[in-house]
Design a protein around this nucleic acid. Structure first.
Length: 471
RNA sequence: GGCGCCGUACCCAAGUGGUAAGGGAGAGGUCUGCAAAACCUUUAUGCAGCGGUUCGAAUCCGCUCGGCGCCUCCA
């Protein structure tokens, strides 16, 4: 397996710490609002990575955090707390906001066939772990107190910012940087806040440094190490985390343990709108729900995402989603016609075996996955299989279903309805057959239109008249 | 201003120095009373432009033009 490791800025061989066991941590959502489809692209990418690893024979332990602690809208000690802002707007408590959007998030994931992490951990349930970790960092000498807050001193960390190539960047630029005057260095960040300027700050905890709440970055370090150990294989997230969040996570984790923390950093690129990136803070974002209300199937969006490599920016448009929908519908239609051909109806046992079919397509498919998750290419293999005239229908299907373990399009749920027609509709079809045999075309066309208005699509084939339910 | 990424047909998109996958859309055809579907065929002597390295470049190097992201909360 080859993967692009952001740490090395290169595609490298993936070698887990323990043979075929893979420990993987993915940065989860901050639950103060719905996820937008840009957020969801990242979770789709992580799902595909996990499924690919599993398909290639690895045992994956997947941990994801739920950020349900309020965070400041910027890294300085000012700005609005997003959770608080949201709770004020909706007239709910911060705790209710968190649980409401957590549920909404998992519902979206389910609709997109994103596998649930083995462990989903809430920040608010791990405050003790964070405090313990900050203590370790403090003991190791990487912190200072200023203005009531505990800061991480980045100047004490030799390789700080390696991931983001920060050493190559010109920090003092013309662009504004609101420097928190308590910081010794602009890149320093808060581990623990005690000075909240918000009234009625609902989320506060006691700590050795005073009553307050944790900094933004510490939760990922504390929880990932708790469940995956002090060094683990893979850490994923959106590309935006490459420059601030992840370097800070690395700095504090490695300061605490003195060892390398994560071996492979894998980042998903952004989904862009015509005008630029989609962002929570700028508003105007698209949710999965809104796509569904516009008549799309969540699988249309999954299909769209599968069509681009995870490290490429993907520009979203109605047109591209329409194309994905058409293409996916063609794919499922092909599946259904093969099922029909071998006489499998809804409810029947599918012609699927656990054993990998003995044809070259699966091996090619695996090779595509091994090449840094080349999903567009992997996806093209399914067309090749389904269209291969030399392969028996049954084998085409079982190969496609096998591939779908990674693609996650739910192809096994496709089936041909055995009988859903009302007696009246059956009569209409019979009447039409009669009219056709008498070459009474106007009558037969009228009956076809009538059935169509009831959602029944009639097609005449060489082997007789067939009907399908309009999608 | 600094850092990084990208420019492949009408659209999306893969491409690992050796002669351009796949999907949409379009065009022709087979079939058909018609329609739809299905199937077949077809659509880039060229990969932003210009130089260079090489027997050979979409792939490597340089420059130019254009797009995007980051440097500030962000998937």
């Amino acid at each position: 397996m080859k993967l692009y490791n952001s740490l090395e800025r290169n595609i490298v061989d993936f070698i887990p710490i323990n043979d075929s066991e893979v420990s993987m941590y993915t940065c989860g959502p901050t639950v103060y609002d719905y996820a937008h489809i840009g957020n969801l692209r990242t979770y789709l990418f992580e799902d595909i990575l996990r499924r690919s690893l599993e398909f290639l024979g690895y045992n994956v332990l997947h941990v994801m955090n739920i950020t349900d602690v309020g965070h400041l809208s910027d890294d300085a000690d000012d700005g609005e707390d997003k959770m608080l802002l949201s709770s004020r707007k909706k007239g709910m408590s911060v705790w209710d906001i968190a649980s409401f959007y957590t549920e909404a998030f998992f519902k979206d994931c389910e609709r997109l066939h994103i596998e649930k992490p083995h462990i989903s951990c809430k920040a608010t349930e791990h405050i003790d772990d964070m405090i313990a970790l900050i203590k370790r960092i403090e003991k190791a000498g990487y912190t200072y107190e200023a203005g009531g807050n505990i800061y991480f001193d980045t100047s004490k960390m030799p390789g700080y910012g390696k991931l983001a190539l920060l050493d190559r960047q010109n920090q003092i630029s013309g662009v504004h940087i609101d420097i928190d005057s308590n910081k010794h260095n602009p890149r320093d960040f808060v581990l623990w806040f005690t000075k909240s300027k918000f009234e009625n700050q609902a989320m506060q905890w006691d700590s050795p440094w005073g009553r307050g709440y944790p900094g933004w970055h510490i939760e990922c370090s504390a929880m990932s190490m708790k469940y995956l150990g002090e060094t683990f294989d893979i850490h994923c997230g959106g590309i935006d985390h490459l420059s601030v969040h992840h370097p800070n996570e690395i700095a504090q984790s490695e300061a605490a343990t003195g060892k390398k923390w994560v071996n492979y950093w894998i980042h998903g690129e952004f989904l862009l709108m015509d005008q630029g990136k989609m962002s929570k803070s700028k508003g105007g974002f698209i949710t999965l729900q809104s796509l569904i209300e516009d008549g799309y199937d969540p699988m249309d969006y999954r299909f769209l995402v599968l069509g681009a490599h995870y490290r490429s920016q993907l520009v979203f448009s109605t047109r591209s989603l329409d194309t994905a929908r058409t293409s996916r519908q063609n794919l499922t239609a092909k599946i259904r016609s093969l099922l029909e051909e071998i006489g499998v109806n809804c409810g029947n046992e599918l012609p699927y075996s656990q054993k990998s079919p003995d044809n070259p397509y699966i091996e090619q498919f695996k090779e595509d996955l091994r090449q840094d998750l080349n999903m567009p290419k992997a996806l093209s293999r399914i067309w090749a299989v389904l269209k291969d005239p030399d392969l028996p229908s049954r084998e085409r299907l079982s190969t496609a279903f096998e591939m779908d373990n990674v693609l996650g399009l739910g192809l096994k749920n496709e089936c041909v309805a055995a009988s859903e027609l009302t007696p009246e509709q059956k009569t209409l079809i019979e009447k039409r057959e009669e009219a056709r045999s008498l070459k009474n075309w106007s009558e037969s066309d009228r009956l076809r239109d009538e059935l169509l208005s009831q959602g029944i699509v009639i097609t005449d084939t060489p082997s007789g008249t067939k009907w399908t339910v309009k999608v």
